[in-house]
């Protein structure tokens, strides 16, 4: 395996290796000269079929800090909008000499298609495919949570997991690739995940997921979670009868001021709030909650660069899953 397509099939060991490598990358990001020569001469293509400035610039920063050459390919206004197929686009990138393709695509499975066909031989990183997965988002969430969890335990985060952490994910799970990637990854790392959503916004089959499902946000807060992850909700969903109105959604499933205050009332001093962004303030989260000291939103963004550096580094410099990768990596770390 030479790609990062999902967290569903990511082992605990590989996940921890990525997070540990990200810790090292984070140290680079704290330096004055934020640059490593690791991927000098390698070409990373950001192939974005959806507008996502946040994710794209995060990957771009990550690749550049590893000294890779970066090509940004936005499908809008390109040959793709004139009907070029994913296959032809991929083969074009192959001919250009891409070593890694970071793909964001509205179709679930697009990244896996690239990785499992003979269209292209580059390493493929899934930067979000439809409503399937967004593995680097989950990795940066896990990274953020792991630092918090280790700090509470008074230990360095390297090598640790999320055993015992209670994480509540709230919102539109049905359409969320972030929720899916987080459910698999956080549970792999030992966390107890609870999903809270209106029943209309949970997929049929969710009962087979390794997590608890609840409809009542207040009861979920009473269960004293260590972290609450709010998901973006699109107001247009109410037009398809997923919920009656944005007002009702906010009252039942939003992290408004009253629910936010409940955290303090329950004595949950260390409970943090995560959001993958972009936030819809006033719908799923109030400004009080978003701007509070509990909010990890900006840390998530910063950690995103470290995690994506780690992924690109592991895929391109040694192969994330190669047998000798561990040894080679250990040697580099030691030097």
């Amino acid at each position: 395996m030479r790609h990062l397509l999902s967290t569903h099939d990511l082992s605990r060991a590989d996940a921890i290796r990525i997070l540990d490598t990200a810790e090292e990358m984070s140290a680079v990001n704290d330096r004055e000269v934020k640059k490593l020569p690791a991927l000098r001469g390698r070409t990373v293509v950001n192939l974005f079929f959806e507008d996502s400035t946040r994710t794209r610039i995060s990957f771009e920063a990550a690749a550049k800090r590893l000294s890779a050459d970066v090509i940004n390919f936005a499908a809008k206004g390109s040959s793709v909008s004139k009907g070029e197929s994913l296959k032809d686009t991929a083969q074009t990138l192959e001919a250009i000499g891409a070593d890694a393709v970071v793909i964001r695509h509205p179709a679930s499975g697009a990244a896996q298609r690239l990785a499992t066909t003979d269209w292209i031989s580059a390493a493929v990183v899934n930067a979000g495919d439809g409503t399937h997965e967004h593995p680097t988002q989950a990795l940066l969430d896990a990274f953020t949570l792991r630092r918090h969890w280790a700090k509470l335990a008074g230990t360095p985060s390297g090598g640790t997991d999320l055993a015992g952490a209670k994480v509540t994910i709230v919102g539109d799970v049905l359409h969320s690739r972030v929720a899916r990637s987080n459910v698999w990854l956080l549970t792999t790392l030992g966390a107890q995940v609870t999903l809270v959503a209106p029943p209309t916004l949970l997929p049929i089959g969710v009962e087979h997921w390794p997590c608890t499902v609840a409809y009542d946000f207040d009861e979920a807060i009473d269960a004293k979670p260590d972290a609450i992850m709010m998901l973006r909700v699109q107001a247009e969903r109410m037009n398809a009868s997923y919920f009656p109105s944005t007002g009702e959604y906010s009252r039942r499933w939003g992290l408004g001021d009253e629910r936010f205050a409940r955290l303090a009332e329950l004595g949950l001093a260390d409970t943090v709030i995560l959001h993958p962004g972009p936030m819809v303030r006033g719908l799923e989260i109030s400004s009080t909650a978003a701007d509070s000291a509990r909010s990890q939103v900006l840390r998530q963004v910063a950690n995103g660069v470290s995690v994506r550096m780690a992924v690109l580094y592991l895929l391109l410099s040694s192969g994330l899953y190669a047998q000798d990768a561990t040894a080679a990596h250990a040697k580099e770390s030691a030097s």
Binding site: S108, D129, T131, R177, R180, I204, G205, W209
Partner: peptide, 18 residues
């Protein structure tokens, strides 16, 4: 709808055909 609605579609994030 893209595939049978059930355990697999939930994981794959493909709209279900119930």
């Amino acid at each position: 709808a893209q595939m049978n609605e059930g355990i697999v579609s939930a994981v794959l994030g493909l709209p279900g055909w119930p």
